[in-house]
Design a binder for these strands. Structure first.
Lengths: 188, 188
DNA sequence: TCACTTAGTCAACGCCGTTGACAGTCAGAT
DNA sequence: ATCTGACTGTCAACGGCGTTGACTAAGTGA
């Protein structure tokens, strides 16, 4: 009794894998309910709607967060490593599914929330110099862009390259936003 | 007779605005056909399917391409300016709609094609040093990430910042991938 | 025993993308 | 002048979708 999963848990488990593998639009409530062995109507009654179930399951809760400790001088490379790390596949899959489903405004809202808690909030304290928050957002944009090419669009040219080389090239570009900006123009 | 738009043209025109404003899933063939004043069945017969119509209309064909001329030293800033330029709103809206609809694999394929012709192909010739193609892809990732935060997710913190400041901060980060990499480690 | 909530079943609603059957129109060949 | 074919357009319908409501069965505390 205690080890057997409830209907709710079965739905959540299948929802995770089906949404990740077939996307939001490609996963029907009926197919999901069949896979979990429950009635489609129960899925709606338990979780409110297909979209609410999607958001609940793709919340990135209980996911390991990147360790941003260590020297600031190599933070850029470590961030890129984290973004491409195979053991972060679950985080990346969730983010990928969110971006791919960003047709819905509530998914976009969740996407903003996730990037903020995953990157921006943990980054802003470590940035010295002016415009720390904006720079943190821009770093998150860089990492999001990398993820978009790598996971969302599945760009062959990127997938074919070695992770080390991408880290060596993209890391310094991220680092350029971590190091305090050298003000070529007067600061406002 | 010659100035009046045909039914096909009306459908394409309404499809452009409705897909951009309400997204792919939020635009039904029936509503689109009603707006264009034609029968829903004709839309399918003319364009094959809703998805084919979407791809045809979001092809970014006949859009002005960024001018990548000028000094290489300031190319990073000019690319960021282009990505955020208000007069490029039509290009950005198309890209936004494509990313938001990237649940479908054919949309992802189009997305890869568009970023390649829009950025990578025009960039790779101007990059000196090793790994030019990979660096061009990574630059495209940076710009795509910026676009994703700015247009797709509509991040308030980014929208609130001035374009000039973003250009001043993000430009050098892009430039870091334009300038030939300083090999800290031996090149393979 | 009686209310009262919960789980579960099932049919149905309204909308969706798409298809097929059918009628009208008009050009060109016979 | 008539037949033929190729379009345009109309309409009803299909199967699938997310979701709802009516209903039964089972368990729980008063």
């Amino acid at each position: 009794m205690t080890t057997t999963e409830t209907g709710r848990e079965a739905v959540e488990r299948h929802a995770r894998t089906m949404f990740e593998q077939q996307g939001y639009a490609g996963t029907s409530v009926r197919a999901l309910a069949t896979a979990a062995g429950v009635d489609p109507a129960l899925v709606i009654r338990w979780f409110g709607s297909k979209e609410e179930l999607f958001l609940r399951v793709m919340s990135l809760a209980e996911r390991p967060l990147p360790d941003l400790g260590g020297p600031t001088g190599s933070l850029g490379e470590r961030l890129v490593e984290f973004a491409l790390a195979p053991d972060q596949i679950s985080v990346r899959r969730d983010l990928t599914a969110l971006i791919r489903a960003s047709d819905s405004s509530s998914v976009r809202s969740r996407l903003r929330h996730v990037t903020r808690t995953l990157f921006v909030e943990r980054l802003v304290d470590r940035l010295e110099g002016p415009h720390a928050e904006l720079r943190a957002h821009l770093i998150a944009s860089q990492l999001g862009g990398l993820l978009q090419s790598w996971d969302v669009a599945e760009d062959e040219s990127l997938l074919a390259a070695s992770r080390e080389r991408i880290v060596a090239l993209y890391g310094p570009a991220v680092q350029a936003l971590i190091d305090p900006p050298t003000s070529t123009s007067p600061d406002a």
